[in-house]
Computed example of a mutant assay.
Amino acid sequence: MSSRLGFRFLNNSRFAFRNASGPFRRSGAQGRRFQSSDAGAAEQQSTFQRLWNGPVGVKTVHFWAPMMKWALVLAGVSDFYRPPEKLSLTQNGALMATGAIWTRWCLIIKPRNVLLAAVNFFLGCVGVVQVSRIYMWQRSQQGSSVEAAKELEHETAETAKGVASQAETAVKKAAEKST
């Protein structure tokens, strides 16, 4: 008896879903199920309306935050012309880490914000370039500082020898005059 009851319930449920009105009804020639009324309206909107009214649209912070963050990318690009000894390693390291972390996070969160992911990707790239410039400059300074120290040592030794020979000649002249 219970199997018949379950079978009747299943058949009645199928019939109810097939003939239901609302989101379960098939919509005309498209034949889609579970279509909401918003989906049809989104197809009819122009590109500008979708940009304006979308979840990452112009009216939201999800659009304007990446626009403002492009200023950081442009500032980093303008620092390409500065000498590496005037750049901050910690600042550019933070930009690199921020770009890497937030690029991934922007693709996970809802609504997915590709514009923010793009600006963070470029911010990370700028950070990588600047950190590598600073690192290469520091490595070149370590090699040249050893060479510079050796050159300074030789110059100091030569100067000391010159001063010592001048002192010896002055002592000899003073000894000859006194005798």
Rank of each mutant, 00 (worst) to 15 (best):
R139K: 14
L5W: 06
G143N: 09
D79N: 06
E85F: 10
R26D: 04
S2G: 07
R4Y: 10
A157F: 14
T156A: 12
L72S: 08
G22Y: 02
S21D: 12
S88Y: 01
L116W: 07
P66F: 03
G162V: 03
A29H: 05
S140W: 03
L89R: 05
K150I: 08
R8E: 05
T90K: 14
R33E: 00
L5S: 09
E158S: 06
T103S: 14
Y135W: 12
S78T: 04
S145M: 11
S132H: 06
Y81A: 15
V129H: 12
V126P: 03
P84K: 07
E153A: 15
F7V: 02
M68Q: 00
R50M: 12
R25K: 12
F34S: 00
R25E: 00
F121H: 05
P55L: 03
M1V: 12
A157L: 14
F15Y: 15
D38K: 09
G31W: 03
E155H: 13
A118H: 08
P55R: 03
Q35V: 08
L123T: 13
S178F: 11
R8M: 05
S3R: 13
R18S: 03
F48N: 02
R133Q: 04
R82K: 15
A157W: 14
F7Q: 10
T47Y: 05
S2F: 08
L74C: 11
S37T: 08
E151A: 15
F15G: 03
R26Y: 08
V128E: 01
V119I: 15
V163K: 10
F17K: 02
E168V: 06
K150T: 06
F48L: 15
R133N: 07
S46F: 02
S13Q: 11
M136S: 07
Q44W: 09
N12C: 10
F34T: 00
A100S: 07
R32Q: 10
S37Q: 09
T169E: 14
V56A: 10
S27C: 02
A170S: 09
A117K: 02
Q130K: 08
S27G: 02
S78K: 10
K161Q: 12
W64L: 02
W137H: 15
W105Q: 10
S178R: 14
G76I: 00
S27K: 09
